[in-house]
Amino acid sequence: MHGLEFDVAHLLAGSLVLASFMMLYQDRLSALLNVYAAHAIVLALSVTWQAFVQHAPHLYVTASIALVFKAIVIPVALHRIIVRLGIHREIETTFGVGLTMIGGIGLVALSMVVMLRVTPTADALAREDLAFALSVVLLGLLIMVTRRNAVSQVVGFMSLENGLVLAATGAKGMPLVVEISVAFSVLIAFIVIGIFLFRIRERFDSVDVQALDRFRGERR
């Protein structure tokens, strides 16, 4: 493993984690979507670098899928959705930013400890990659848990999926079919969730999931 290859891969994966942190404290929806687009671009770069390093041309396909769908199509579509829903200026009240950030740091530390402990025999690049990927997945889950708005929960889910793709490309030899099917499943999930957003909105005049809970007669 050349020093440069490792360093660049490390840098890109680290930037992905950083982008996840940026998403964690964005309380405005349109800003959140922009950060998500940046997240996807970093992912595409990281996958391209892996393709180059591993001499695996099929990973270029994965990278372009990530770039086209996740960095362009989905953010644009979500932007249009929130504009049509009229919530693009909405400010979400999340938990305190400091608290969430500390939780996120804890999660990153946890995933480092876990991954470095359970994969001592693996390739160094794959190890680092997996540790960062797990951090991105956990941060995605944290975003989903701390948000009330359905759109931001969708974004959390998408960033979680980016973490999965990062893990998959870090491990050598994943077939292209799996990548494509994952990409399609995300697209379909996106479509379904988009439709649901409008249905929820139609029914409750809001995409705040609290409204659903109120409808179910739950106390908060």
């Binding site: 946890l110 956990l138 889950l141 908060r220």
Partner: peptide
Amino acid sequence: QFLTIRRYLALVFSALVLLLLVLA
């Protein structure tokens, strides 16, 4: 059986973190 969506997510999330902690 009667939790809110976010609480379910939080439940899954904390179970995952707990298992990872056990592993770590």
